[in-house]
Simulated scan of single mutants.
Amino acid sequence: MGTGRKWKVWLLTVAILVGAVILASWMFTTVMDDEWGSQREAVQSAYEKTILTKAVKVDRFVGEKSYTVIQGEDKIGQPVLVWVGQDEVRSEMASNGITAEQAQNQTLAKQPDAEVLRVTPGMMNGTAVWEVFYKQLPEGEVKEQYYYDYYRFADGQPVDTWRLSIQ
């Protein structure tokens, strides 16, 4: 193969790779546009209807109803959580409840071998909760199991545990 032909093959390969990256980026942006737009609307609604002045973290919680949950601050820097649902906006000072770390520690206290994957604020039956998503290998099992533990935001009382049966 001649030197000129090697360069053409190399340039064609690079062009295909660049095109694939651009296409993948465009597809990702197209798919995520609705979600990002929904999050922006929820944050704007929280700014307008609550004492939230700075959004720090935005999560999606899907239960019996879907909520966008914004963790942020009020005008004097105090931590605030805001749950924005389809027909409601609810806010709580973070100091009025337990922290994500406390919820995680409760799960680890009852399941010391668990690996916590995510802790997210949520809403169950109109009650603000922390959702702790974790996995563990049950004794005598060969396959890991995934679980959700729910703790009341206000006082950390356990609400429920869900075991995922299909993986």
Rank of each mutant, 00 (worst) to 15 (best):
T3R: 15
S165D: 11
Q136D: 10
Y47A: 06
A154K: 15
Q102S: 06
L17W: 09
R5H: 07
F133C: 03
Q136H: 08
E35P: 00
I22A: 15
G72V: 05
Q39G: 07
G140S: 13
V31M: 10
V58D: 00
G63P: 00
Q111V: 13
I51Y: 00
V129Q: 01
E35Y: 11
R5A: 12
S66F: 04
A100Q: 07
V89R: 03
W26I: 13
Q102L: 08
A128E: 12
V43R: 07
D59P: 01
L11R: 04
K110A: 12
L164D: 09
W7D: 09
G4Q: 15
W130G: 05
Y148A: 07
E48N: 10
A100Y: 03
V43A: 09
Q136R: 14
A42R: 04
A15H: 04
G122P: 01
V9Q: 10
D160I: 00
V14C: 13
G19H: 05
G63T: 00
Y47K: 10
P112W: 06
M1I: 09
E35R: 14
T53A: 05
M93S: 10
V116S: 02
E92K: 14
F133V: 01
G2H: 09
V116D: 01
A20L: 14
Q167K: 14
S38T: 15
Q145F: 07
S66G: 12
K54F: 08
E41I: 05
E101V: 09
V129K: 00
M123C: 10
F28N: 11
D74A: 06
Y147N: 09
Y47G: 07
Y67L: 06
I22K: 02
N125R: 07
V69N: 02
S91I: 06
D74K: 00
K75E: 12
A114K: 05
G126D: 09
L108W: 06
A109N: 08
Q167S: 12
Y146N: 10
Q39N: 14
Q106R: 14
I70E: 03
A55R: 03
Y67H: 07
M124R: 11
R90I: 15
E64I: 01
